[in-house]
């Protein structure tokens, strides 16, 4: 199984952008891309359009015109994936879905890699813990913005969870199933190749050490706290009247 095969599903080769998008498994068969009447309901509803130069209607138009320049349009990275456009589109088109495929196409061409930099390690963390967390880089930024109270909370999290009678953060995955699935579906190869291209392009900003971070437990290796047995809530019932 090669990387290309996996890409095939998100961005299958097609005669045009529209064909690729329609054939992508990210979009349903019922997608009304060809039926778009350029009514602008999507743009009028779109938070990204309201606050940035992004315009989903135009994006659809450019896709239908097979204007590949759209992949280089930086506003492509402004979409919130909120699906408001999809909710409002009278033709059952979904700019939100279009953008998802377009970003994958852009990444394939090495465009927009800098937006991905700090997310590329999510897969490793997932494989190790079975859960996801905000990438460390951004955790650091959050710590900066939210200050000590949040950092303290993060430090106390295990204790709070214990008090609430909640189990371990990490999942039980003795067979390393998550890793196998990420591997088998080509995720690591994909992440690796993106990382390599990013390095090549020199756009990487690198990860700086963040003093707040060290205060946060569970960011590296699994720290099994309170691993409770499978089952119903076993916490104190005292509060039930």
């Amino acid at each position: 199984m090669t990387l290309i095969q996996i890409d095939e599903y998100d961005t299958p080769a097609g005669k045009s952008l529209a064909e690729t998008i329609k054939a992508s498994i990210r979009t349903p068969d019922s997608l009304g891309l060809d039926r778009c009447i350029q009514c602008g309901a999507c743009t009028a509803s779109c938070p990204a359009a309201r606050f940035t130069a992004y315009n989903p209607r135009l994006l659809v138009k450019r896709v239908l015109e097979n204007d590949r320049g759209v992949l280089e349009d930086e506003t492509l990275w402004n979409c919130f994936y909120c699906y408001t456009c999809q909710l409002r589109c009278p033709r059952n088109n979904s700019p939100a879905k279009l953008v998802q495929v377009l970003r994958q196409l852009a990444l394939n061409e090495g465009i927009g890699l800098e937006n991905m930099e700090h997310f590329l390690g999510l897969g490793e963390f997932f494989a190790a813990h079975g859960i996801s967390q905000v990438p460390e880089h951004y955790l650091g930024k959050m710590a900066e913005a939210l200050g000590s109270s949040w950092v303290e909370f993060k430090r106390d999290l295990p204790a709070i969870r214990a008090e609430l009678g909640l189990g371990s953060l990490d999942i039980r995955d003795e067979r390393k199933e998550i890793r196998s699935i990420l591997e088998g579906t080509g995720h690591f190869e994909r992440a690796e190749s993106l990382r390599a291209r990013l390095k090549e392009s020199g756009a990487s900003e690198g990860i700086e050490e963040n003093k707040f971070l060290n205060a946060i437990p569970g960011k590296n290796k699994s720290e099994d706290i309170n691993l409770e047995k499978n089952g119903r809530y076993s916490g104190p019932e005292a509060l039930i009247v």
Partner: peptide, 23 residues
């Protein structure tokens, strides 16, 4: 029932364009 085997849905990674739909 709460299962300790259930994993993350991938949502965070998926919606930052990291995971493919197949993953």
């Amino acid at each position: 029932f709460v299962s300790e085997e259930q994993s993350c849905c991938t949502g965070i990674g998926h919606y930052v364009d990291l995971y493919g739909q197949l993953t």
